[in-house]
Design a binder for these strands. Structure first.
Length: 425
RNA sequence: GGAGGAGUGGCCGAGAGGCUGAAGGCGGCGGUCUUGAAAACCGCUGGUCCGCAAGGGCUCGCAGGUUCGAAUCCUGCCUCCUCCGCCA
């Protein structure tokens, strides 16, 4: 959420910067100016009366009989007026909130301006494409080895679900542990979070109110997390952190649940886009002035395991049009998938500035005696597990149909070097 | 799921319609004293909103309500504890 005061004082700049996102991002700002003025006027009027009322109320104790009755009658009127103004004030503030909660974050000045993902900028690449003759896609590789079963998953659950079998099931969790080890080495504290959260948490990180249709909701009113970013960022909701403790760096493994509403026909094959997948997330709470340096470090932290797996990838700066709702600046990591002959997103690293912190009221005290300030929140995938498995399958595929595993993952697989056909029973 | 009990400032804990943003203690910060430290003593010590400021409003789990006036009374919700049941 943007700062109301700032927006009112800088309406033109806000409009201009939001416009670079496209899609009418600046629209929701329209009623803000008038509402803010009305809000201030109502606060001033009601508080003046309330002060008067309180002062006069003090005298009630000393008065008796007729005199007291007379004052009581006058105060009753005053009290009713105050209540009426406060009711209107509440309504106005709700309108302001409703408007502001639907306004996306301002793109940072360093974000390339663009109109679609084609305007994203490749910053750098790591490694080289492997030489593979007529590479096959992971689906074919996995199914041929008997390690992926989409048909039964469709029967048991539906589309966009999958069963892993045998060594591939083991590989998924091996990758999880490998990522967590990498994050721990880089100073991130591991959390194992809840996978169901309340609406306040979803609002805190920005999924609600605008993107409810992307989420799964339980009959009990909980939401399934679309990423561990939600529980981990909200871990410090409504807290004032000690400045000396910053930055706080957390890593968390979790399954992620996404309805993928509106992505019909997109990536329908394979495990690229599933309703449920695994991810290891990196989350940081930073002083605002460190946020952008921290983002660069976060990207390197996310790249590290990819490099140890020897997977060719590139770092892409998202342009204004491709930026997520809450993000101020985002770098995607795109891994090379020979079977698809394409780079695919395997991590997304963002800084949100104080956008999430304002919603979730996450603050820090710079040093003792100072007023609290909003922190900057950041997060990045470190990394998407399913897509990493896809990359391992497609980059490690051999002519005989087997898959050579990267050396770095073998210790997590009991020394297994190669994925071979699964025994059927 | 059933039956009870409880939620007050960083922490402990008083308060039971007005004088309570809230006693007292602990902790923290500053000072006196000391060669230094401890002890002792003195002072300060939540957040937020409106305002240039002076000042004022709100805030005792959350949301409503009663009242001229609510931490104190009423209603709903949330969380925690105890006992019973069920359960990975």
């Amino acid at each position: 959420m943007l700062d109301l005061k700032w927006v009112v004082a800088n309406l033109d700049e806000a409009r201009r910067r939001l416009a670079t996102r496209g899609g009418g991002a600046a629209e929701a700002l329209a009623p803000i100016e008038a509402l803010a003025a009305e809000r201030r006027q109502l606060i001033q009027a009601s508080e003046t009366q309330r002060a008067e009322q309180r002062k006069a109320s003090e005298q009630m104790r000393a008065l008796k009989g007729e005199e007291q009755a007379r004052l009581r009658a006058r105060l009753k009127t005053l009290s009713d007026e105050v209540k009426e103004k406060e009711t209107r004030l509440k309504d106005v503030e709700e309108q302001i909130d409703r408007a502001l909660l639907n306004v996306p974050n301002l793109p940072h000045e360093t974000v390339p301006v663009g109109t679609s993902e084609r305007d994203n900028q490749v910053m750098r690449a790591w490694g080289d494409k492997p030489a593979i003759d007529s590479p096959r896609e992971h689906t074919e590789i996995g199914e041929n080895l008997g390690l992926l079963d989409f048909e039964r998953a469709a029967k048991v659950s539906g589309t966009r679900f999958v069963f892993y079998r045998g060594a591939l099931a083991r590989l998924e969790l091996a990758v999880v542990h490998f990522f967590l080890d990498s994050a721990r080495e880089r100073g991130y504290l591991e959390l194992l979070p809840p996978y169901l959260v309340n609406a306040d948490s979803m609002r805190g990180t920005g999924q609600l109110p605008k993107f409810e249709e992307d989420l799964f909701k339980t009959t009990a009113g909980y939401y399934l997390i679309p990423t561990a970013e939600v529980p981990v960022t909200n871990y410090h909701r409504d807290e004032i952190l000690e400045g000396a403790r910053l930055p706080l760096k957390y890593t968390a493994f979790s399954p992620c649940f996404r309805s993928e509403a509106g992505s019909y026909g997109k990536d329908t094959k394979g495990i690229i886009r599933q309703h449920q997948f695994h991810k290891v997330e990196l989350v940081r709470f930073e002083r605002p002035e460190s946020a952008h340096a921290a983002l660069e470090e976060l990207v390197r932290d996310a790249q590290a395991p990819l490099q140890r797996l020897g997977l060719h990838h590139r770092v892409v700066a998202l342009c204004t049009a491709d930026l997520g709702f809450a993000s101020e600046k985002t770098y995607d990591l795109e891994v090379w998938l020979p079977g698809q002959n394409a780079y695919r997103e395997i991590s997304s690293c963002s800084t949100f500035g104080d956008f999430q912190a304002r919603r979730a009221q996450i603050r820090f005290r710079p040093s003792q005696g100072d007023k609290p300030r909003l922190v900057a929140t950041l997060n990045g995938s470190g990394l998407a597990v399913g897509r990493t498995v896809v990359a391992i399958l497609e980059n490690g595929q051999q002519r005989d149909g087997s898959v050579l595993l990267p050396a770095a993952i073998r210790p997590y697989m009991g020394g297994l070097e190669r994925l071979m056909p699964a025994a059927d029973r």
